[in-house]
Amino acid sequence: MANSAYTHTTSPKPLLSKMKKTTYRAEDEENIITNNIMFDRRVVRGNTYAAQVVTHNTQREVERMRYESERTLRRDATCQRKERLAKPSTPPPAEGRAHIKAQTDTFLEELSDRPVESEAVTQTEAILDRPPSPLFIPSKTGVDKETDIPGGDLFDFDIEVKPILEVLVGKTLRVSMMEVMEEAELDAIQRRQMEFEQMRNAELVEVQRLDAEASRRFAEKQRRFTQETDRLRQQAELGQKVAARAFARSYLANLSELAFDQLEDSGHFVDPVEKEIQDSFIPWLFDSVVETTNNHISSSSCVDALIVDAIELASNLQSDVIKQIKQKERARVFAVEDAQEIKEAEGTAK
């Protein structure tokens, strides 16, 4: 109790409940039923500073003004009713027609929407000069209670506002700081996200670099493979060329001579003198030889025939001689002496 902010001379107690008993004096205060003062009509709620305090005189004056205005209205209504009853009413219009207000005076006047004004005079009534009636105070109800409020026990704004203001200012500053920190955190997250994005892009470029490096190496490998293949192919072609050249060299060693021979044979290299000799002279020579030979043969045959004839003639002559010799032999036998002569004769004949 000593540490509490307030001290009470009389400890607070709940008020009596109206539902239990509404007697002026509660005889048995021990059996009272507690009631929530928030629903007690006797307790005025709201800001006491903003409440409008109406005095009894003011209320009476308001009631008097209301009474006066009601009386004026009633009097006006009575006058209008009397005027309406005094004049005969216009018969109702025929079917399909309507009444229209029109001026029937000799001199027309301008009509306006201005309401009819009338002057009225009034006088202050004597009743207002009467002093106000004493305030009616109903008989006392409820239970009187007493309490002692020492100095400093009531609400002091300057003192009580401090902790509330501290809380309000502190909470506002805290919320503001939280918002600032949240914005800073969001900015940091966004900045970090941007950096991460840039780093991710850099890593993607690194992937491109590695891809390019792999492509470059693959291309280099393909280039070298193609180069080696070309080298082997060229080497094989070189071997084939060498072999072909050797073969060709060996093959063509006598080719020129054969070619020249064939060309010469085919008549590509022609000597006009030789051609003249071959074409003209040799045939002429052969013809001449043939003719000469033919002549020689014919001469020889003639000679042979002559010789044969001569031989035949000689043989005939020989046979004649032989016959003569034989005849002479016989004669030689017959004549030895004569034989010598015959021999000489034969020698002469030879």
Binding site: V44, R45, G46, N47, T48, A50, A51, Q52, V53, V54, T55, H56, Q59, I137
Partner: peptide
């Protein structure tokens, strides 16, 4: 003097 307090509008 008792006050007649109008209810807060």
């Amino acid at each position: 003097m008792p006050l007649i307090v109008k209810p807060t509008p």
